[in-house]
Write a protein that binds this DNA or RNA. Structure first.
Length: 516
RNA sequence: GGUCCGUUCGUCUAACGGUUAGGACUCAAGAUUUUCAUUCUUGCAAUAGGGGUUCGAUUCCCCUACGGACUACCA
């Protein structure tokens, strides 16, 4: 029987989930679902210093908004704490699994694969500086560990004494000397690294009785039977350590496959996409709005009016493509089409224009009724209430020129509020001496029109203009100016029919008075 | 500095040794639209550089350049 695919998304609750993080979660999800596997959400909160309240809830909510639902880890919007049939590996929060890790760290020490180290951060910092000043690279490995205060060098009694004395000690991995670690990455292929360039990383800290990422991650991935690890490129440098750790723990035969995703880069200039870029260039970097403890607000795709489907779609295409010319994919279609083979190795610069285009495509696919409901919510925030039938007609008229629901307001605010000012460029071009008289006559013709349907108005208008020998351009544009206030919008007949007889005539009278 | 990863139009990318190097976004032009958009058509625009390997390199290898990540008792 083939093994069941199990992947995990393991964010750290140190702040809101970045869109790059959402992409990692998405690729994990797509990969798992395509294989009928499970997607697990695990919270890696082993850094007690950087814990941010609300971050975990944010992560769960963001994934939910995207339609990415974990098979394991989250139940009813909360991270599962108790083991159950659905959540056999609970708890899924590393801080609640702390008791598990020490035994593995101690086992590594017993087997000679790790050791106790008593040097302080300050001592090490000083040492690093010293090396740097000599132009050398400080590597905490076989070259130096015997000269430092470690259980490798100290006597058994001395080690015992120091372990008891205080909790300023750590357990470090003992990286083997001069070995070439051969690794395999599903996206990048084969990678080799000599162990001499690796540091003896800290695995466990006595101070807070917590493991570091490296240990917790490997232990949990093993315990949770993770088959494939798909994570960000920033983890690639620690892949050799992870290989070595699996080996030292005796788990290398069943260690997961790895895939490292390239980073999302800022749209302009150099470097990875950061919160700052969003603020600077005017686009969201986070899926949902986030307010930090200082009250600073970071905008979110959701709040900016992106459809979750569009967001997921554009995210999927940042570093992956189906190899066909199809660009619009639902989540289900992505599940079917996704393949790590087609994930691009290089970093992708985020393009806000393309993001907007995606949303426009999705807006067009949406039902008018749904869009109208969304638009009414937007209107309500501005204190405007509208009949849903009326709103829906507006939406259908404006749909093809909008990318966001909020665009309906910019595009059609005049359907709700009469123009208070007029585009003077349009006026100077089309407003003639005889215009007031013409508009006045038009107003009275319209007010006596029985059938106020769009089609009837569409028929009457040009007929009248032709009959009286008026200038088509001048009349139509000034009429539009009266109704809209500018030279934009759908057909005049559509606007008139929607506005209704009274409002149309009132607006015509009003512009005549304004320019009298 | 060291280690690792990467490099095709401005951007996202296709082309798994043989193509006029394709598509999408952006931009420009034209057509349609009495407006603005839409739509349609067309256009601009790329294999980082240098060596190999090969009958033939975007594709394989090496070097250089550039970019990125990592280099914490953070993840």
């Amino acid at each position: 029987m083939a093994e069941k695919t199990r992947v995990r998304f393991a964010p750290s609750p140190t702040g809101p989930l970045h869109m790059g993080g959402v992409r990692t979660a998405l690729y994990n999800y797509l990969y798992a679902k395509q294989r009928g596997g499970d997607f697990i959400l695990r919270i890696e909160d082993t850094d007690s210093q950087r814990f941010v309240p609300g971050a975990e809830e944010y992560i769960i909510e963001a994934l939910a908004w995207c339609g990415i639902s974990p098979d394991e880890g989250v139940e009813g919007g909360k991270i599962a704490e108790e083991a159950s049939a659905k959540h056999p590996h609970a708890p899924y929060r590393q801080s609640q699994r702390r008791h598990l890790y020490r035994e593995y760290a101690e086992k590594l020490v017993k087997d000679g694969n790790a050791y106790y180290a008593f040097d302080t951060s300050e001592e090490l910092d000083a040492l690093r500086k010293e090396y740097e000043s000599r132009g050398e690279t400080f590597t905490y490995n076989f070259k130096v560990r015997h000269s430092l205060a470690t259980s490798l060098y100290l006597s058994g009694e001395e080690t015992e004494r120091r372990l008891r004395e205080n909790n300023h000690w750590v357990i470090r991995f003992k990286v083997p000397e001069d070995r070439v670690v051969k690794m395999s990455d599903m996206i990048r292929g084969e990678i080799e690294v000599n162990t001499n360039t690796l540091d003896d990383k800290v695995l466990w800290k006595a101070a807070d009785e917590l493991p570091t990422y490296h240990l917790a991650n490997i232990v949990d991935d093993h315990l949770m039977e993770i088959t494939d690890v798909i994570r960000g490129e920033e983890w690639l440098p620690s892949l050799p350590l992870h290989y070595l750790l699996y080996e030292a723990l005796g788990w290398d035969k069943e260690q997961p496959r790895f895939a490292h995703l390239s980073l999302l880069l800022k749209p302009d200039g150099k470097g990875k996409l950061s919160k700052r870029d969003g603020d600077r260039l005017g686009f969201p970097v986070f899926p949902l709005e986030w307010k930090n403890s200082e009250g600073e607000v970071s905008r979110g795709y959701r709040e900016d009016g992106y459809f979750p489907e569009a967001f997921v779609n554009l995210l999927a295409f940042l570093g992956w493509n189906p190899g066909t010319e199809q660009e619009i994919f639902s989540l289900e279609e992505l599940v079917n089409a996704f393949s790590l083979d087609r994930v691009v190795k290089s970093g992708a610069k985020f393009n806000p224009d393309k993001a907007k285009w995606y949303n426009q495509e999705y807006l067009r696919m949406h039902d008018d009724k749904l869009l109208a409901v969304g638009f009414e919510r937007y209107l309500a925030k501005m204190g405007i209430s509208s009949d849903i039938g009326y709103t829906e007609k507006i939406v259908s008229l404006l749909k093809e020129r909008a990318a966001f629901i909020s665009d309906f307001w910019d595009l059609g605010g005049y359907f709700f509020i009469a123009p208070s000012e007029y585009d003077m460029a349009v006026k100077s071009k089309f407003w003639k001496e005889e215009t007031p008289a013409i508009l006045g006559e038009l107003s009275s013709i319209l007010s006596s029109t029985e059938d106020f349907s769009r089609d009837e108005i569409e028929r009457i208008l040009p007929a009248v203009i032709k009959e009286r020998g008026w200038q088509m351009g001048s009349v139509m544009n000034t009429l539009r100016l009266a109704l809209v206030g500018a030279s934009k919008g759908p057909g005049v007949a559509d606007i008139i029919a929607l506005l209704g007889k009274d409002e149309t005539c009132a607006r015509i009278e009003r512009i005549i008075r304004s320019f009298a």
